[in-house]
């Protein structure tokens, strides 16, 4: 379980400070799919970076299974929005996956079967010898997912991973991700600014307010069977509720 307690994050110097997060508290259960939803500049990526251990909170604490998070941990892996920068462009598809196995000193004998398993899971096993530049945006994002699954983390932290994809590819990626989540039982913390995306993926949606002093304004349980169709009246009603909640913030953000 990930536990965030009274986290504040302040950027800048003594004279010019920006309070990004103000007393955010949050519990994330094992195996849960949590979406952090809010407009740009609401500090959701900052919160994710703190969860990953890339940045320390200014005050407050973050624990993973009771142990304080002080840096990037083996149990939590991040998936970045821009796969083009996050992948290693000089390594082929399979070499990108192998990188994590190599640096984690996983015995060589197991490499091939692990690479095979996860490339199959994201349907990239026919493209092993290609370089990231030869892949489409959706394929790159799938490669990033395979690369992170291969080191078998408990928690996947995803920072708007599908924001740069076209709508059709994004829907396909949602199906891929949900299937993987159901098969592997990972905990997923997924940052997005897309209401429809949050509704179709999440068990719970954490609504965040625009900064400075962002907080989680509301937790919404999405207690509906997947796949969730936006034409379903209950889903549509939830969409409208969330949109109404975001409206004042959007006006302020502009």
């Amino acid at each position: 379980m990930l536990r965030v307690t009274d986290v504040r994050k302040v950027f800048g110097t003594a004279h010019d400070t920006y309070i990004a997060l103000d007393n955010v508290s949050l519990d994330i259960a094992d195996g849960e799919f949590l979406c952090l939803l809010g407009p740009s500049g609401c500090g959701k990526s900052t919160l994710l970076n703190i969860l990953a251990g890339f940045e320390p909170p200014t005050s407050g604490s973050v624990t993973a299974d009771g142990a304080p998070v002080t840096g990037a941990g083996r149990d939590r892996v991040m998936c970045f929005q821009d796969a083009g920068s996050a992948l290693f462009p000089w390594l082929t598809v399979e070499e990108n996956v192998r990188f994590g196995l190599r640096v984690r000193k996983i015995p060589k004998a197991g490499w091939d079967s692990i690479i095979d398993k996860y490339l199959r899971m994201v349907d990239l096993d026919r493209h092993r010898r290609k370089f990231p530049a030869q892949l489409s945006g959706g394929m790159r994002q799938r490669l990033q997912i395979a690369r992170m699954l291969a080191v078998e983390p408990q928690v996947l932290l995803m920072d708007e991973p599908f924001a740069a994809l076209d709508a059709l590819t994004r829907r396909h990626m949602h199906a891929v991700l949900l299937e993987i989540w159901q098969r592997t039982g990972k905990t997923i913390v997924f940052v997005t600014h897309d209401i429809a995306e949050a509704i179709s993926l999440a068990d719970r949606i954490g609504m965040m307010s625009v900064g400075p002093r962002s907080v989680i304004t509301k937790m919404i349980d999405v207690d509906m069977p997947r796949p969730r169709d936006l034409t379903n009246p209950r889903v549509a009603q939830l969409f409208n509720e969330i949109e109404a909640l975001l409206a004042p913030d959007l006006a302020r953000a502009e």
């Binding site: 996050a86 990188f99 640096v103």
Partner: peptide, 17 residues
Amino acid sequence: PIARQRAAECLGATRLQ
């Protein structure tokens, strides 16, 4: 890119790696 360094970091690479 920062994302690339952080990706390597959470995959388990040391600072030297």
